[in-house]
């Protein structure tokens, strides 16, 4: 599972924003804002990690039960899929 190329994630003034760069900007002029855990998820998916590995890493980084994290990861992936951001 991997996020399409052509997007830049940056922390700006305490907010996490994703903006398109390169050719992508031609058909997408918007901006995505993420919270801190959303930004962490984005970074992992940008690297092409599998869903199970993402969940495993999030478990070690966040103090939350596995079923909660798995549900959050599922929702995040669903949103990315809806926005056509995954390869």
């Amino acid at each position: 599972m991997k996020i399409k190329s052509g997007y830049l994630l940056r922390e700006v003034a305490g907010s996490f924003v994703v903006v398109p760069v390169g050719e992508e900007t031609l058909d997408f002029s918007g901006v995505i804002t993420l919270n801190e855990s959303g930004a962490q998820l984005w970074k992992k998916l940008e690297k092409g990690m599998s869903k199970d590995d993402v969940v495993k890493e999030m478990l070690s980084e966040y103090d939350a039960p596995e079923d909660v994290i798995r549900k959050d990861v599922d929702e995040f992936i669903e949103k990315l899929t809806g926005a056509d951001l995954l390869e």
Binding site: L8, S15, V17, V31
Partner: peptide
């Protein structure tokens, strides 16, 4: 930030 990205001019490059 959102408004600046909409109304400001940025290049498409990284």
């Amino acid at each position: 930030l959102k408004m600046l990205l909409y109304q400001g001019f940025r290049s498409r490059g990284k």
